[in-house]
Design a protein around this nucleic acid. Structure first.
Lengths: 349, 349
DNA sequence: TTGAAAGCGCTAACAG
DNA sequence: CTGTTAGCGCTTTCAA
């Protein structure tokens, strides 16, 4: 490599004594179509190879007005729920010839707004976003640019944007019903980010399940305000020291359940003898916990697959087909963290 | 928004009846320097705002030969070790005005090569890579392009590239010493990707610790060949059913330890009564396992911070300073997964 | 079968 | 204080 300079069409053209156009045609596989002589084609190819030519995608994108780049914005890359989705999206994207720019919104609407703006300036062809979930105006503004977008895990009823989410309502019901079947009456709900659609739907499932069984709704058993470990810890502390200690806790995210466990063990209580718990979103390690955790499993791979498929569809076709609101089923994974209360005890309430 | 067309300098220039240059100068903050009249400046700014102008970073990058984009290649986005690093890198990058393209090499050298090529074509300003670790020629080729690169978690002695890694050798020693202090003699090692630097260093630590204590090295106690859960499971199965069942297992990654636990519980054994275990790389949930896991903790945040700092340094300065090989200390986190063997038993070996 | 020329949106050297 | 011009590397229309 005598020359550190990157090869360009121009350089190849000069060496091959042909025009830039010809080189471009050969190298983008249009030799056939433009009926370029086998001989020139060979020469061009040889020189391109010698020079290790790689097309400059920037220039290409500028000209084509297509970057073959998508953006993904998630609230916490290190949360295994989101990283599983991101992984899936990246792998499928590459297969389709796209690269992905990743942004961590840190569950913060301002950072989310900034990320959207940045991705816009970088002219992504489409965007997958797990929105923080409190505001949607900025997303609405973005849709005006006619850049395809699909929201994942959370959605906005106000917004006409394709989305894919778990069946949060049903999943929540499954969990609460299971508690009730096992004799629990005082069931707490440690929620995630209030007002986000995930949380709303799960909360609704919780409330409806209680109601279906004619159980009273006790607002003091609903605690927490975001999906993090901290919030789970604090919420549990409050519950355990409150006037009406619950017999069961429904933790609405994997991180929340970790915080709950921390608080529970700090209070010298054991699962499920002293308190039962179910977590939303299964994780590989839940099987190996002190008490294997009963969870509501989400099909993360499917969620990732569907979201990128939807997005690529939007990008590559103008079909205004419907059915762009997809929900993915959940599954109650029964392990050992829920205690069966005896009838007498359960009636005692 | 009467017009769906994105605003450009040209459009603004026309409306403001000035040249594109002037608009460019105003909007990139060079108004002062170029002594543009307050009046024109105001007009330009007003129109830009009206039209919601956002610079096209593609065009900018093409012209400037700088994309303000970095690439990150990791073997598994969903592995919390890597996703913690990725998160850190993304957050710090953005603070510095950079965006990040993410690639998952799936612990596969071919995909890694492809990813590097793709990132090259996209003209990233720098790259952070946790290489698969078996081959380095392709990375060497990339360095010839004079695009800064830093390797993380794994390095190549052959390569003169900045890197940041945990003190794998010491961490491994800490773990094995701890086993030995507790009376263990038959200590197995479930390794990760053979020939990767991480694995080499940890293996060396293991061997040296044994030797320091005059313990024999038993090759049949070294199993496994990659960092995944599967490998941990299989390795453990083999160990537990082998002729000389170990009393202790050192699992060299968080995923391996998960697989080990699966095998152990399948064999109806309990930790630490039947078998002791230490995992490399601490995770939040290790505290809540059936038997809280003793681990070798890595400072993931620091690793992420340092790597991006190193990279930005390389990008923004031509200083050929040294000290670009940084190792980050590890810490033995003692919990409950190692049993203290009685002297009599331990001597029995 | 090939090439000239224009242009994607931006910056910067140079000239007034 | 402002504008002209050239060019980053690529694709594509039009013409030969």
């Amino acid at each position: 490599m005598p020359n550190n300079q990157q090869a360009t069409l121009k350089i190849i053209a000069e060496r091959a004594h042909v025009s830039v156009t010809t080189v471009s045609r050969v190298l983008s596989g249009d030799a056939e179509k433009c009926r370029i002589s086998k001989k020139t084609e060979d020469v061009v190819r040889r020189i391109a190879k010698e020079l290790h030519y790689e097309p400059n995608q920037l220039a290409r994108a500028l000209r084509l007005k297509q970057t073959y780049t998508i953006g993904i914005i998630i609230p916490d890359i290190s949360n295994p729920f989101f990283s599983s989705i991101a992984r899936c999206v990246e792998i499928e994207s590459r297969k389709a010839g796209y690269s992905v720019m990743i942004c961590d919104s840190q569950e913060n609407t301002e950072i989310e707004k900034e990320s959207i703006k940045i991705l816009g300036m970088r002219k992504i062809d489409g965007m997958i976003i797990c929105p923080v979930g409190k505001e949607w105006k900025h997303i609405y503004e973005f849709t005006k640019l006619n850049i395809p977008i699909v929201t994942v895990d959370r959605y906005f009823p106000e917004l006409n944007v394709p989305y894919v989410v778990s069946e949060n309502y049903d999943g929540s019901m499954q969990a609460v019903n299971y508690f009730i079947e096992n004799g629990h009456r005082r069931i707490a709900f440690i929620q995630g980010l209030t007002d986000s659609s995930v949380n709303n739907d799960r909360l609704r499932g919780y409330k409806d399940a209680l109601q279906m069984h004619n159980l009273p709704l006790n607002e003091s058993l609903i605690v927490g305000d975001n999906f993090g470990e901290q919030s789970g810890y604090i919420g549990t502390k409050i519950l355990l020291n409150g006037p009406e200690r619950p017999t069961a806790i429904f933790a609405v995210s994997n991180l929340i359940s970790l915080g709950a466990m921390r608080a529970i063990s700090e209070e010298q209580l054991t699962i499920p003898d002293d308190i039962s718990i179910i977590a939303f979103d299964d994780q590989p390690y839940f099987n190996y916990l002190c008490t294997p955790m009963t969870t509501v499993g989400q099909r993360k791979e499917e969620i990732g697959q569907i979201s990128i498929k939807l997005l690529l569809n939007e990008i590559n076709s103008d079909d205004i087909s419907d059915n762009k609101r997809i929900t993915v089923s959940t599954e109650l994974i029964v392990r050992k963290s829920v205690k069966r209360l005896t009838a007498s005890l359960s009636e005692a309430y």
